[in-house]
């Protein structure tokens, strides 16, 4: 450690300037979110009036939770949140296992045709979801499912139709693959010499040292899945299966009550923000770790 020097006046001014810039930028990044939270507490008329002054960012005037009560009246929000959490968590967990296993196979094991398969998977990352939504709808509609009521053809109107097609992510496989390739090769070789099977190497050697990339993959997938809109709209004809983003549509009636819209936006954003703030250290470090591997 180098001992702290006493700062010269010049350096002090640089520091002050630096902080000023940082604070100004912080305002730029946070003001729409503050606006959302504050607006959700105001009646619609006041909310709209306040946008013409700095009051838009302040909790003043007629402040209450009425918009939240009204929002919960308007739509079965708890149901939407439960569905979103269930779909998101299942997809993330299953995806981490299956994608990392595949990436492990691509990175370390020798088998015929692996490079071709890997190229196709990486290229498929470019396919926009909007391009395949209708064909995918036709496919899931013909797939069988065994549920509590026995065998049923068609996956429509369920939670699994929102999960299974999204377990595999070519981006995630690519992410894992990049990370694994940069791991010290000695790790694998040593385990092999020890007589470990490929499966053992995967979960005893690779998984324990890959925390950051697992965290990154989980977080990015979480955001993707939480924000799903087009697909659930197409496959959930029944209210009990709808996720939060489809629920947003309940608030855009002919006469939009903006206070309620802001409340709903806050309701679906706050859980993600809390998750982010509580995990932010791991969150950012993990993404950063993946960055260098690119």
């Amino acid at each position: 450690m180098i001992a702290q020097r006493v700062k010269t006046p010049m350096e002090r001014w640089v520091t002050v300037g630096h902080y000023t810039l940082l604070v100004a930028l912080a305002f730029v990044f946070i003001f729409p979110i503050v606006f959302m939270l504050m607006s959700s507490l105001k009646p619609s008329e006041q909310l709209l009036r306040d946008t013409s002054s700095l009051n838009a960012f302040l909790p003043i005037g007629d402040i209450s939770l009425n918009n939240y009560y009204a929002a919960f009246e308007r739509a079965p929000i708890w149901q939407f949140i439960f569905n979103s959490i269930f779909v998101t968590t299942s997809t993330v967990v299953l995806g981490l296992v299956i994608n990392s296993m595949a990436a492990f196979s691509f990175a370390f094991l020798r088998w015929k045709g692996k490079n071709a398969v890997l190229s196709v998977i990486i290229a498929s990352f470019i396919i926009p979801f909007e391009a395949i939504a209708i064909p995918l709808l036709l496919i899931v509609n013909t797939l069988p499912w065994i549920g509590p009521e026995g065998l049923k053809i068609s996956w429509l109107n369920s939670l699994h139709v929102q999960i299974i097609p999204f377990i595999v992510s070519s981006f995630q496989i690519f992410l894992f693959y990049q990370f694994f390739k940069d791991l010290p090769f000695e790790l694998i070789e040593a385990a092999r010499i020890d007589g470990a099977s490929s499966w053992q190497i995967y979960y005893r050697v690779i998984v324990p040292v890959s925390g950051p990339v697992f965290a990154t993959a989980a977080i990015l997938r979480f955001l993707d899945m939480w924000n799903q809109y087009l697909w659930p709209l197409m496959v959930t004809q029944s209210e009990v299966y709808r996720p939060v983003m489809v629920g947003l549509q309940y608030f855009f009636q002919l006469n939009v009550v903006w206070g309620e819209v802001m409340a709903y936006l806050s309701i679906i954003t706050i859980p993600v923000l809390i998750l982010y703030l509580s995990l932010q250290r791991a969150f950012i470090t993990s993404i950063a770790t993946t960055g260098i591997k690119g």
């Binding site: 492990f104 088998w111 999204f166």
Partner: peptide, 26 residues
């Protein structure tokens, strides 16, 4: 190793085939 390689990649390959590649071919 070949067997393990295939087995580990198979779930991903099957899912990506059914839910991404085939729809894209369609």
């Amino acid at each position: 190793e070949t067997l393990a390689g295939w087995l580990m990649a198979t779930p991903a390959i099957v899912l990506i085939l059914v839910f991404l590649i085939i729809p894209f071919i369609m």
